[in-house]
Design a protein around this nucleic acid. Structure first.
Length: 683
DNA sequence: CGTGGCCGGCTTTTT
DNA sequence: GCCGGCCACG
């Protein structure tokens, strides 16, 4: 490792030894480099790898970090001994180690968002209110519960903002939600952090164990931490204060899901004696792009304040394309992308198209397809969210954790075995009356000897079948996971059902492939994680989005939301739809009833501005900003005004293109060109 | 239990 | 204006 490869502030951050340090890392300023060099530096100073922890937000970031440290050290074995993981995987680790202190059973389940929504929906259904489950937006309730949990507001202490209906239902739902999770032996993502904090606060033995574990802690993307995560970190470093956090207050774009920007804004007040290092030299973008980014972000007031600079040249001007309507905008982007590839030799993967909201992607996809531009979309439906995958996982879950009511409800009549809603409701009511869990009630009702006036013999047999399938699965799970899962698929004849139910053969095959994909993932995890049990494997799976397997590189143009673009960079970036009500979004300008009200009721567009800043700073060489003058919203064509953020960019950095004019001049030749390109392609 | 028609809604999303 | 979710009907 060569410290001379670093610029002065980078070196200062890397060689900083004890005490708290905030590294304000501007976009493209070599943030990951600082963290990895710092880890290597600590090791070189003789710090044992077991004493170092680095916390990230995504699995991808964690893997990348470990990868780069291993490369830097040229030593995989040492890299393996480092603790590098997401907040949630670290929380899970601690909860697992302290499972007994918490009173969790071995097979406890992690509930993801769709599970959480299921729990809330179920509680709403049983609420005395008329039509409660239809009247309310379940997600809005869940958001409030999550914000409360992360703010350590107890279920019985939920504060209702005057006149906010959603606060009122949340106050009713939240305590029941938390009770339900515990009854189901389940934790949600928030619990993975908050339960750890609670434990560290209430159990001195546990606290001491974890406080002496790490002597150096690092946190990446610190601007995204919420209060609970801050508390967790605080506890871990309470003995020594050796904490280095790296982040950028100007890239804080997740406050809507609980991130608290004051964590980074007030770091030096929260951690006594903290030092501050600013990384302002940018190694990514041209001067033009940085000037635009700086000009925009300078309009925000609540910030540490830094100015990105680069020793690169001015480069190309930013192209500001004004289209008469959205169709023209999308068409032009698709053709320009194609032109850059064909004429300028840009690889497809050197280009990205970014937008504020996913709906904008639809038209772009269409145009890219007609122009035969290969593209891949970031985000979209996650592999583990697919129905057939979740169904199989639900069987595994109920086999491991008999209290996982949600999993049981999911598969109680899947594949269809004649257990209707009435039967389920009856059984649930019975479970409630007997203070038993649903699985035990189902088992009793399905027993051959059961003589139950409420349940028809046919239904009894169906329940008996289900119990048989699950119990056989549980027995098989004592052996090999894959053999057991294959046995399950046979027992329930899943593939027959998928073939039968799918609208087409290709759709059926796709679903079968998805299940096979799950088996592939299970196999890999089994082989990699060795002796760990299935319960553990499933928990790790829930913390794992499938982005790793989804699009492994590939020569394709990237389509992504501005949120999804954070942390990425491309030689060419298109930011589309830079109009008022898209960026800043209308929802920010006029909040809805379901939106969480800000403490001071003020409309704050600074996060939207940061989103714009994030987009601009993704570009290395060439930035395109496009907008349309007319856009149909809710069926009506509406005149559009340029985004206020676009107006904040100095004119001399922009080169305006009037696409209405270009269209008038070029339509015939363009059509001729397309005609010929189609011809040559068919040959 | 599956499907077609109708009604409502229409940011961002990782773990 | 379109899509997705839900209910009613077959």
């Amino acid at each position: 490792m060569d410290l001379a490869k670093l610029n002065p502030p980078q070196r200062e951050a890397v060689t900083h030894f004890g005490g708290p340090l905030l590294v304000l890392a501007g976009a493209g300023s070599g943030k990951t480099r600082v963290i990895t060099f710092r880890i290597a530096h600590l090791l070189a100073q003789g710090v044992p790898p077991e004493a170092i922890a680095a916390v990230t937000f995504t699995n991808k970031a964690a893997e990348e970090m470990r990868e780069r440290v291993a490369f830097l050290l040229q030593d995989r074995r040492t890299a393996k001994k480092l603790t590098i993981g997401t907040f949630h995987s670290m929380g899970l680790w601690i909860l697992k180690e302290e499972r007994k202190a918490l009173g969790f059973p071995r097979g406890f389940t992690i509930y993801d968002q769709s599970d959480q929504l299921g729990v809330v929906r179920e509680i709403l259904r049983h609420l005395a209110k008329e039509d409660a489950d239809r009247r309310y937006d379940v997600k809005a309730i869940l958001t409030r519960i999550s914000l409360a949990k992360n703010g350590f507001v107890a279920p019985d202490a939920y504060k209702i903002h005057e006149g906010d209906d959603y606060d009122e239902v949340t106050a009713e739902i939240y305590p029941r939600y938390q009770e339900a999770l515990r009854a189901f032996a389940a934790v949600d993502f928030d619990d993975l952090i908050t339960e750890v904090v609670r434990l560290l606060e209430t159990n001195p033995a546990v606290r001491d164990r974890w406080r002496s574990r790490f002597r150096f802690v690092m946190v990446d993307e610190y601007q995204d931490t919420n209060r609970a995560q801050l508390m967790m970190v605080k506890h871990l470093v309470a003995d020594h204060g050796n904490l280095v956090v790296v982040g950028d207050d100007d890239q804080s774009i997740y406050s809507w899901r609980g991130a608290d920007p004051t964590n980074i804004l007030r770091f030096t007040e929260m951690f006594e004696g903290a030092r501050l290092v600013k990384l302002e030299q940018n190694y990514r973008s041209t001067k033009t792009i940085l000037d635009a980014a700086n000009a925009v972000i300078n309009n925000n007031t609540q910030r540490h304040g830094k100015t990105l600079w680069s020793d690169k040249g001015a480069g190309a001007p930013i192209i500001h394309a004004v289209a008469p309507d959205v169709e023209t905008e999308a068409k032009w982007v698709a053709r320009e992308v194609r032109r850059l590839h064909q004429d300028d030799g840009r690889p497809w993967s050197a280009m990205a198209v970014m937008y504020r909201s996913n709906i904008q992607a639809k038209l772009l996809e269409e145009e890219l397809r007609t122009n035969e531009v290969p593209y891949t979309m970031y985000g979209g439906q996650q592999f583990f969210e697919r129905k057939e995958v979740k169904d199989v996982i639900a069987y595994l879950r109920i086999a491991l954790n008999g209290r996982d009511e949600l999993a049981l409800r999911r598969i109680i009549n899947y594949p269809a075995r004649g257990v209707g809603a009435t039967t389920v409701e009856r059984l649930v009511a019975r479970a409630q009356a007997q203070h038993a869990n649903l699985w035990d009630v189902v088992r009793a009702a399905g027993a051959e000897a059961a003589d139950d006036p409420e349940i028809r013999p046919q239904t009894r047999r169906a329940l008996g079948d289900l119990v048989g399938v699950v119990e056989r699965l549980r027995e098989r799970l004592a052996g090999d996971v894959i053999v057991a899962t294959r046995g399950l698929l046979d027992d329930i004849a899943l593939y027959d059902d998928l073939r039968h139910a799918a609208p087409s053969m290709t759709a059926a095959q796709r679903r079968i492939d998805n299940v096979e994909g799950l088996i592939g993932t299970l196999t890999r995890h089994r082989d990699k994680r060795g002796g760990e049990g299935l319960a553990d494997l499933l928990r790790h799976l829930s913390l794992q989005s499938d982005s790793e397997e989804a699009d492994a590189g590939g020569e394709k143009v990237i389509l992504t939301t501005l949120h999804g673009s954070k942390g990425l960079e491309f030689p060419v970036v298109f930011m589309v739809g830079l109009e008022e009500e898209l960026l800043p979004h209308a929802r920010t300008l006029q909040p809805q009833a379901t939106d969480v009200i800000d403490a001071d009721h003020a409309i704050d567009i600074s996060e939207e501005r940061r989103l714009c800043y994030v987009g601009i700073t993704r570009a290395q060489q060439q930035l395109y900003i496009t907008r349309a003058c007319v856009r149909t919203s809710r069926g009506r064509p509406m005149p559009r005004t340029p985004s206020r953020f676009l107006l904040e960019i100095p004119d001399e950095l922009l080169e305006v293109r009037d696409l209405a004019e270009e269209a008038r001049e070029k339509v015939p030749s363009d059509e001729v060109r397309q005609f010929f390109s189609k011809l040559s392609f068919d040959d």
